[in-house]
Computed example of a mutant assay.
Amino acid sequence: MSTATAVPDTMRAAVLLAAGEVEMQQLPVPTPAPDEVLIRVGSVGVCGSDVHYYKHGRIGPFVVDSPLILGHECGGTIVAVGADVDAARIGQRVAIEPQRPCRVCAQCSAGRYNLCPDMKFYATPPIDGSFCKYVTIQAPFAHPVPDNLSDDEVALLEPLSVGIAANRKGNVIPGSKVLIAGGGPIGVIALQTALAFGAAEVVVSDPVAERRDLALTFGATGVLDAITEPPAEGYFDAFLDCCGIPSAVVSGLGALRGAGAAVLVGTGSDEMKLPIPTIQNGELIVTGIFRYTDTWPAAIHLVASGKVDLKRLVTGHFTLEESAAALESTTTPGALKSVVRP
Rank of each mutant, 00 (worst) to 15 (best):
G334A: 05
L38H: 01
G219V: 04
Q26S: 15
H301M: 13
C105W: 00
K337M: 00
S329K: 11
L191Y: 09
E153M: 11
A33W: 12
I137N: 01
V188E: 06
V135Q: 04
K311E: 15
R112K: 13
E283L: 08
A194G: 07
I164F: 06
T332M: 15
Q92V: 14
G219R: 13
G244C: 05
P277L: 10
V339H: 05
V250D: 03
Y292I: 15
P32K: 10
D65W: 02
G60H: 05
S338V: 02
P101E: 03
A83R: 14
Q25Y: 11
I289G: 11
Q107H: 13
F290C: 12
A324V: 12
T287G: 13
N281I: 13
Q138Y: 14
P144E: 09
P207A: 08
Q26R: 12
V22R: 00
A139I: 10
E229H: 05
R100M: 14
A238M: 09
P125K: 00
A190R: 09
V94W: 12
I186F: 11
Y235K: 11
A165W: 08
P144V: 12
C116N: 05
E210R: 05
D84I: 13
V178L: 01
T330N: 14
G244H: 02
P140T: 09
V203A: 10
G71S: 01
V203K: 02
G48M: 12
G76F: 10
K133G: 07
C47Y: 05
L27D: 09
G71H: 11
L157K: 00
V303P: 04
V249E: 10
Y53W: 03
F121P: 06
Y122P: 00
G282Q: 11
D309A: 04
K337C: 00
V64S: 00
R103P: 06
L68C: 01
G175Q: 01
I276R: 13
F131D: 08
F141N: 10
Y54N: 08
K311V: 13
P185S: 14
G129M: 00
E321C: 03
D50H: 06
S2R: 11
K273P: 08
C105D: 10
T267H: 15
P246I: 15
P126N: 04
G266Q: 01
S150V: 12
I289R: 04
G111N: 01
